[in-house]
Nucleic acid binder design. Structure first.
Lengths: 340, 340
DNA sequence: CATTTTATTGTTAACGTTGTCAATCGGCAT
DNA sequence: ATGCCGATTGACAACGTTAACAATAAAATG
């Protein structure tokens, strides 16, 4: 009986520079240069090498290249979670931005856990990425120190209120909350409710709530009811929290939700319960997701530049190789739907 | 004036095995062994090394390790796009599955383009990943050849109908379409419409449509109207396509949508237009996304195991290091909402 | 006590690539 | 003819790690 080895040996093994060089009858370094489009290569050499590389199906070994170079084209991307459409768009943008420059994302999820984030960062750094993108501005002290050893650009996304380690691309959640309060107040609502989820992870939602409450005080009114769910955001959760809140505090005339999923739930509940939106109840979301624009009553919300944030984060990473870190504050926009 | 170098030199450079070894007064290989938890290490040695590593903030260089080992703990993940909630869940599952085993995902997006997929695969392979996850079963011939040189496990996700390169974790889109047809026929609908988007990317949606149409014929009826939009799926697109279809073919009594985004749009249109769902019009989606469960009339749909698919793909990758590739067909489930 | 195991640590040589420095070859001005 | 220049190619030594083997000391065996 043939041993296992013999099954595998007939598969052509991965070719190396040496193999290509031998076949082409040139030196390894010449192959390397051709592969990297180095200057001063004769057409004759280039052709020989390209043919040989093609024949052998040569795939460069980036591990070796990056090791020698002390730098890779990998970018570490640390997001809290993938169970949130927000980070989908952000990651989409990041990928788009990175791809333009031939960079690859290595993904790590912190799951909103500091210890885990620390481990993930450590893990990703071990690949000598050329840069790292973190979510939010609040990170374990030691993370900054660890990264600083690598002398690579750091870009933090989502938030700009605080002191970033390096560059930052985000928006002001305080301003957004103030704008929401002003807008809703201007629409005549006075008895506000607030509904959040998952114990206010990420922290940014807490920032928004506090700023919203503060602003209401300035305007001479306040949140008369507030629910922070323990479960994750979902339309179902938003619907039941809304029902709950209206039962307990019937005087509430407008609810500001931590995100559009919850808000859509609120809207759907109102539709089912025959509550007149926006007259009896105003509904305001946050993020401005697509589906909110298609409901019979389009969901009023705050449109956040998530995709753009990702793209710009990637671009800033590139720029920071030469330039100083910047803080870029992107604009949000109030989307006036039919629910307010 | 100080030159630039002097600004950077005061930052402690990244420590290597050698630095740790010197500080601890042991050999490099001993440090390596401690870091990898190799057997037969004395407590004395381990302590010395750990202290030195801690003092220097040592981060192992995986590039070097992987180069020497001829294998990394990276997994190449190639998805068509991130602008689709479906792949969000899948990626979430993949990350969860990989993380269990200390593996890292390197992400590549094909954007439904064969050339681009080829480039992405090539790119990712250059990192010597320990495995690769591809989306769908239809790939450029040369991709399989290229991967085979690496002797690494390949798992293809989403689909099981066809011949995978290696293992596969997916579902039968044909069976799903047949089940949908049978279910809707059983509910009494007879004049069917179908609405898809983005010129039927991914191909799987085309498979479903064809199987749906075939099944309707078997049942003695047929699709009386069909719209394949060129734009991407969105609730707005679904709404306008629905309006359009009903205007042109008022006899349609049930629409099967390529996905839930489109279907929700259809539902919202019906609500706005005062069309009685499910009596005058049945609406059936595909995927079973969360938000469809929270609408006043929950959206009937086919629940697909997206997250689970990701987790299982990751696990299968691990298993395939020792075992033969398998094809795992996961079950879908018809979710009977209020729209049919 | 000589001899064999066993446990622990060290030495050496790669892994595949690329930066640095040399070498070669015409051409061209002196 | 001589010497110099630019263009092109090559030799060699790293990058930081680890497998394989060697060496040493301690323990167990007869």
């Amino acid at each position: 009986m043939k041993d296992l080895k013999s099954f595998t040996t007939d598969r052509p093994a991965r070719a190396t520079l040496r193999d290509v060089a031998t076949l082409a009858g040139v030196s390894e370094i010449s192959v390397s240069r051709v592969m990297r489009n180095a200057p001063n290569i004769s057409d004759a050499l280039r052709t020989k090498v390209m043919n040989a590389a093609g024949a052998l199906n040569y795939t460069p070994n980036r591990l070796a290249g990056a090791l020698k170079n002390q730098s890779s084209n990998l970018v570490a991307v640390v997001l809290p979670s993938m169970s949130n459409e927000v980070f989908l768009s952000v990651l989409d943008g990041i990928e788009a931005g990175l791809d333009e420059h031939g960079l690859n994302a290595v993904l790590g999820l912190s799951e909103y856990d500091n210890d885990r984030e620390w481990r993930v960062v450590r893990e990703l750094l071990s690949w000598s990425p050329m840069g790292i993108i973190l979510t939010g501005l609040h990170h374990d002290e030691s993370i900054a120190g660890r990264i600083s050893q690598f002398d690579i650009p750091v870009v933090q996304i989502m938030d700009v209120e605080g002191s970033p380690i390096g560059g930052a691309v985000g928006m002001s959640h305080t301003k957004a909350a103030v704008a929401a309060a002003d807008y809703l107040f201007g629409k005549g609502y006075r008895k506000f409710g607030y509904i959040g989820a998952w114990s206010e992870r990420p922290e940014r939602s807490r920032t928004r709530r506090l700023a919203f409450e503060d602003r209401l005080k300035v305007l001479g009114t306040r949140c008369v009811a507030s629910r922070i769910l323990e479960e994750r955001s979902s339309a179902l959760a938003g619907a039941s929290a809304t029902a709950d809140m209206l039962a307990a505090s019937p005087e509430v005339d407008c609810i500001f939700f931590a995100n559009d999923d919850l808000a859509l739930g609120g809207l759907f509940h109102a539709m089912s319960a025959g509550i007149k939106v926006p007259d009896e109840l105003g509904i305001m979301g946050f993020n401005g997701i697509d589906i909110g624009k298609a409901t019979p009553l389009p969901l009023s919300s705050i449109e956040t530049p998530r995709y753009e944030m990702g793209v710009m984060a990637a671009q800033m990473l590139l720029r920071m190789q030469h330039e100083e870190p910047q803080i870029v504050e992107l604009d949000f926009r109030i989307f006036e739907g039919g629910t307010t």
